[in-house]
Protein backbone atom coordinates (compact mmCIF):
# COMPACT_ATOMS: atom_id res chain seq x y z
CA UNK A 1 0.00 0.00 0.00
CA UNK A 2 1.63 3.22 -1.14
CA UNK A 3 0.05 6.58 -0.51
CA UNK A 4 0.59 9.30 -3.07
CA UNK A 5 -1.60 12.02 -1.61
CA UNK A 6 -3.69 12.54 1.42
CA UNK A 7 -6.06 15.42 1.73
CA UNK A 8 -8.25 16.36 4.67
CA UNK A 9 -10.86 19.01 4.12
CA UNK A 10 -12.88 20.55 6.93
CA UNK A 11 -15.89 22.62 6.05
CA UNK A 12 -17.57 25.36 8.02
CA UNK A 13 -20.66 23.24 8.51
CA UNK A 14 -18.47 20.63 10.23
CA UNK A 15 -18.46 18.29 7.31
CA UNK A 16 -15.18 16.61 6.70
CA UNK A 17 -13.80 14.94 3.60
CA UNK A 18 -10.76 12.71 3.73
CA UNK A 19 -9.32 11.89 0.33
CA UNK A 20 -6.52 9.38 -0.12
CA UNK A 21 -4.83 8.51 -3.38
CA UNK A 22 -2.82 5.27 -3.51
CA UNK A 23 -0.45 4.14 -6.21
CA UNK A 24 -1.43 0.61 -5.24
CA UNK A 25 -3.71 -0.99 -2.69
CA UNK A 26 -5.38 -4.37 -2.16
CA UNK A 27 -8.90 -3.02 -2.58
CA UNK A 28 -10.25 0.48 -1.98
CA UNK A 29 -13.52 -0.93 -0.59
CA UNK A 30 -11.75 -3.26 1.83
CA UNK A 31 -9.46 -0.44 2.94
CA UNK A 32 -12.33 1.92 3.77
CA UNK A 33 -14.52 -0.76 5.32
CA UNK A 34 -11.76 -1.69 7.73
CA UNK A 35 -11.15 1.91 8.82
CA UNK A 36 -13.30 1.84 11.93
CA UNK A 37 -12.82 5.43 12.97
CA UNK A 38 -14.36 6.61 9.72
CA UNK A 39 -17.85 5.54 10.52
CA UNK A 40 -18.99 8.74 12.10
CA UNK A 41 -21.50 11.28 10.99
CA UNK A 42 -20.71 14.07 8.58
CA UNK A 43 -17.55 12.53 7.31
CA UNK A 44 -16.90 11.23 3.83
CA UNK A 45 -13.84 9.09 3.24
CA UNK A 46 -12.63 8.60 -0.31
CA UNK A 47 -9.96 6.17 -1.49
CA UNK A 48 -8.70 6.28 -5.07
CA UNK A 49 -6.09 3.87 -6.42
CA UNK A 50 -4.00 3.67 -9.57
CA UNK A 51 -4.08 -0.09 -9.27
CA UNK A 52 -5.69 -2.68 -7.04
CA UNK A 53 -3.89 -5.88 -6.17
CA UNK A 54 -7.06 -7.58 -4.98
CA UNK A 55 -9.89 -5.58 -6.56
CA UNK A 56 -13.26 -7.03 -5.63
CA UNK A 57 -16.58 -7.35 -7.34
CA UNK A 58 -19.62 -8.89 -5.70
CA UNK A 59 -19.64 -12.40 -4.24
CA UNK A 60 -15.89 -12.71 -4.15
CA UNK A 61 -15.44 -12.05 -7.87
CA UNK A 62 -12.24 -10.29 -8.86
CA UNK A 63 -12.25 -6.87 -10.44
CA UNK A 64 -9.49 -6.50 -13.04
CA UNK A 65 -7.49 -3.51 -11.79
CA UNK A 66 -4.17 -2.95 -13.58
CA UNK A 67 -2.16 0.24 -13.32
CA UNK A 68 -3.94 2.34 -15.90
CA UNK A 69 -6.33 5.17 -16.49
CA UNK A 70 -9.18 2.97 -15.22
CA UNK A 71 -11.07 4.32 -12.25
CA UNK A 72 -10.96 2.50 -8.93
CA UNK A 73 -12.53 4.61 -6.21
CA UNK A 74 -14.52 4.01 -3.03
CA UNK A 75 -16.59 6.29 -0.83
CA UNK A 76 -17.59 5.66 2.77
CA UNK A 77 -20.25 7.69 4.56
CA UNK A 78 -23.26 7.40 6.79
CA UNK A 79 -26.88 8.22 6.01
CA UNK A 80 -29.57 8.37 8.69
CA UNK A 81 -32.80 6.43 8.35
CA UNK A 82 -33.75 3.33 6.44
CA UNK A 83 -31.58 1.51 3.92
CA UNK A 84 -31.48 3.46 0.66
CA UNK A 85 -31.03 1.78 -2.73
CA UNK A 86 -27.69 3.46 -3.33
CA UNK A 87 -26.70 0.87 -5.92
CA UNK A 88 -29.38 2.31 -8.20
CA UNK A 89 -29.00 5.91 -7.09
CA UNK A 90 -25.23 6.03 -7.65
CA UNK A 91 -25.59 4.11 -10.93
CA UNK A 92 -28.07 6.63 -12.30
CA UNK A 93 -25.83 9.51 -11.21
CA UNK A 94 -22.82 7.90 -12.84
CA UNK A 95 -24.66 7.71 -16.18
CA UNK A 96 -25.55 11.39 -15.83
CA UNK A 97 -21.95 12.35 -14.97
CA UNK A 98 -20.50 10.47 -17.96
CA UNK A 99 -23.09 12.04 -20.23
CA UNK A 100 -22.39 15.56 -18.94
CA UNK A 101 -18.59 15.30 -18.94
CA UNK A 102 -18.57 13.97 -22.51
CA UNK A 103 -20.88 16.80 -23.59
CA UNK A 104 -23.61 14.30 -24.44
CA UNK A 105 -21.36 12.32 -26.78
CA UNK A 106 -21.43 9.27 -24.55
CA UNK A 107 -24.76 8.15 -23.15
CA UNK A 108 -24.51 4.92 -21.20
CA UNK A 109 -27.58 3.08 -19.94
CA UNK A 110 -28.27 1.24 -16.73
CA UNK A 111 -29.47 -2.32 -16.34
CA UNK A 112 -31.20 -3.24 -13.10
CA UNK A 113 -30.01 -2.70 -10.54
CA UNK A 114 -26.68 -1.05 -11.31
CA UNK A 115 -24.82 -2.34 -14.35
CA UNK A 116 -23.64 0.48 -16.59
CA UNK A 117 -23.97 -0.53 -20.23
CA UNK A 118 -22.51 1.09 -23.34
CA UNK A 119 -22.92 -0.48 -26.77
CA UNK A 120 -24.40 -3.55 -25.10
CA UNK A 121 -21.30 -4.10 -22.98
CA UNK A 122 -20.72 -3.63 -19.27
CA UNK A 123 -18.31 -0.76 -18.68
CA UNK A 124 -18.58 -0.20 -14.96
CA UNK A 125 -19.10 -2.06 -11.71
CA UNK A 126 -20.59 -0.71 -8.51
CA UNK A 127 -20.11 -2.60 -5.25
CA UNK A 128 -22.16 -1.34 -2.31
CA UNK A 129 -21.51 -2.78 1.14
CA UNK A 130 -23.44 -1.59 4.16
CA UNK A 131 -23.59 -2.03 7.88
CA UNK A 132 -26.26 -0.97 10.32
CA UNK A 133 -25.17 1.83 12.62
CA UNK A 134 -27.22 3.56 15.24
CA UNK A 135 -30.32 4.84 13.46
CA UNK A 136 -28.84 4.63 10.00
CA UNK A 137 -26.50 2.79 7.70
CA UNK A 138 -22.84 3.16 6.84
CA UNK A 139 -22.32 2.71 3.11
CA UNK A 140 -19.10 1.78 1.37
CA UNK A 141 -19.59 2.36 -2.34
CA UNK A 142 -16.89 1.12 -4.70
CA UNK A 143 -16.87 2.15 -8.34
CA UNK A 144 -14.79 0.70 -11.13
CA UNK A 145 -14.86 2.13 -14.65
CA UNK A 146 -12.99 0.64 -17.57
CA UNK A 147 -11.28 3.02 -19.95
CA UNK A 148 -9.13 0.17 -21.21
CA UNK A 149 -9.33 -3.61 -21.16
CA UNK A 150 -6.87 -6.43 -21.75
CA UNK A 151 -7.13 -8.29 -25.03
CA UNK A 152 -8.21 -11.41 -23.24
CA UNK A 153 -11.22 -9.68 -21.65
CA UNK A 154 -14.49 -11.56 -21.99
CA UNK A 155 -16.84 -10.41 -24.67
CA UNK A 156 -19.45 -8.82 -22.43
CA UNK A 157 -16.98 -6.25 -21.08
CA UNK A 158 -16.58 -2.87 -22.75
CA UNK A 159 -14.94 0.49 -22.22
CA UNK A 160 -15.88 4.12 -21.89
CA UNK A 161 -13.93 6.06 -24.52
CA UNK A 162 -11.74 8.74 -22.93
CA UNK A 163 -12.76 12.02 -24.46
CA UNK A 164 -11.79 15.50 -23.36
CA UNK A 165 -12.88 16.21 -19.75
CA UNK A 166 -14.01 12.62 -19.22
CA UNK A 167 -11.41 10.89 -17.09
CA UNK A 168 -11.15 9.18 -13.72
CA UNK A 169 -10.35 12.35 -11.78
CA UNK A 170 -13.20 14.36 -13.26
CA UNK A 171 -15.63 11.52 -12.50
CA UNK A 172 -14.30 11.24 -8.93
CA UNK A 173 -14.81 14.94 -8.41
CA UNK A 174 -18.41 14.86 -9.64
CA UNK A 175 -19.19 11.76 -7.57
CA UNK A 176 -17.70 13.43 -4.47
CA UNK A 177 -19.98 16.44 -4.95
CA UNK A 178 -22.96 14.14 -5.37
CA UNK A 179 -22.17 12.18 -2.22
CA UNK A 180 -21.57 15.35 -0.26
CA UNK A 181 -25.06 16.50 -1.28
CA UNK A 182 -26.44 13.08 -0.26
CA UNK A 183 -25.00 13.36 3.24
CA UNK A 184 -26.37 16.88 3.60
CA UNK A 185 -29.79 16.68 1.97
CA UNK A 186 -30.51 12.97 1.83
CA UNK A 187 -31.48 11.02 -1.25
CA UNK A 188 -32.72 13.28 -4.10
CA UNK A 189 -36.49 13.06 -4.48
CA UNK A 190 -36.24 12.55 -8.25
CA UNK A 191 -33.78 9.66 -8.22
CA UNK A 192 -36.32 7.23 -9.69
CA UNK A 193 -36.87 9.53 -12.68
CA UNK A 194 -33.11 9.81 -13.18
CA UNK A 195 -32.81 6.06 -13.04
CA UNK A 196 -35.67 5.49 -15.52
CA UNK A 197 -34.16 8.12 -17.81
CA UNK A 198 -30.93 6.14 -18.03
CA UNK A 199 -32.66 2.76 -17.93
CA UNK A 200 -32.04 0.33 -20.76
CA UNK A 201 -35.26 -1.55 -20.04
CA UNK A 202 -38.03 0.81 -21.15
CA UNK A 203 -41.05 -1.44 -21.72
CA UNK A 204 -39.12 -4.32 -23.18
CA UNK A 205 -39.22 -7.95 -22.30
CA UNK A 206 -36.93 -9.01 -19.50
CA UNK A 207 -35.67 -12.25 -18.01
CA UNK A 208 -34.71 -12.49 -14.37
CA UNK A 209 -32.80 -15.35 -12.85
CA UNK A 210 -33.53 -15.39 -9.14
CA UNK A 211 -31.04 -16.56 -6.56
CA UNK A 212 -32.96 -19.84 -6.40
CA UNK A 213 -32.22 -20.22 -10.12
CA UNK A 214 -35.86 -19.63 -10.94
CA UNK A 215 -36.34 -17.99 -14.35
CA UNK A 216 -38.92 -15.22 -14.53
CA UNK A 217 -39.87 -13.94 -17.97
CA UNK A 218 -42.04 -10.91 -18.47
CA UNK A 219 -42.29 -7.28 -19.36
CA UNK A 220 -40.33 -4.62 -17.53
CA UNK A 221 -42.73 -2.36 -15.65
CA UNK A 222 -40.50 -0.16 -13.49
CA UNK A 223 -38.72 0.14 -10.17
CA UNK A 224 -40.24 0.71 -6.75
CA UNK A 225 -39.17 3.39 -4.31
CA UNK A 226 -37.02 0.78 -2.56
CA UNK A 227 -35.24 0.09 -5.85
CA UNK A 228 -36.77 -3.32 -6.42
CA UNK A 229 -37.56 -4.50 -9.94
CA UNK A 230 -41.20 -4.70 -11.02
CA UNK A 231 -42.00 -7.20 -13.76
CA UNK A 232 -45.35 -8.05 -15.32
CA UNK A 233 -45.40 -11.79 -15.67
CA UNK A 234 -48.47 -13.89 -16.49
CA UNK A 235 -50.55 -10.74 -16.25
CA UNK A 236 -49.42 -10.01 -12.70
CA UNK A 237 -47.07 -7.38 -11.29
CA UNK A 238 -44.30 -8.84 -9.17
CA UNK A 239 -41.43 -7.20 -7.31
CA UNK A 240 -37.95 -8.57 -6.85
CA UNK A 241 -35.12 -7.42 -4.60
CA UNK A 242 -32.58 -9.95 -5.84
CA UNK A 243 -31.64 -11.64 -9.05
CA UNK A 244 -29.69 -11.29 -12.25
CA UNK A 245 -31.54 -9.86 -15.23
CA UNK A 246 -30.78 -10.19 -18.89
CA UNK A 247 -32.16 -8.38 -21.88
CA UNK A 248 -33.41 -9.51 -25.19
CA UNK A 249 -32.17 -7.03 -27.70
Amino acid sequence: MKTLNQLKLHFKDQNEIIFEHFSEIDSTNTYLKDKQEDSRNRRISIALADQQLAGRGRSGKNWYSPNSENLYVSFKFKLEGRLQPLSLIVGAELCKIINNLSEKKIAPNIKWPNDIILDRKKVSGILVETEIDNGGFIYTVGIGINFMLPNKAENHWGIIPQVKQLNRFAITKELSLFIQALTQNGVPSNWQQDWEQASIHKRNSITLKTNNSEIIKGEYFGISNTGSLIIITNGEKKEFASGECSLEY
Binding site: P85, I132, F137
Partner: peptide, 16 residues
Protein backbone atom coordinates in the same frame (compact mmCIF):
# COMPACT_ATOMS: atom_id res chain seq x y z
CA UNK B 1 -19.50 -9.58 15.04
CA UNK B 2 -20.75 -9.90 11.46
CA UNK B 3 -22.72 -13.16 11.32
CA UNK B 4 -24.33 -13.07 7.86
CA UNK B 5 -25.18 -10.93 4.84
CA UNK B 6 -28.57 -10.03 3.41
CA UNK B 7 -28.31 -8.89 -0.21
CA UNK B 8 -30.86 -6.59 -1.86
CA UNK B 9 -30.49 -4.55 -5.05
CA UNK B 10 -26.97 -5.99 -5.24
CA UNK B 11 -26.09 -4.25 -1.98
CA UNK B 12 -24.33 -6.49 0.49
CA UNK B 13 -25.73 -5.68 3.93
CA UNK B 14 -23.66 -7.02 6.77
CA UNK B 15 -25.74 -8.18 9.70
CA UNK B 16 -24.07 -7.99 13.09
Amino acid sequence: DVICIVEAMKMMNEIK
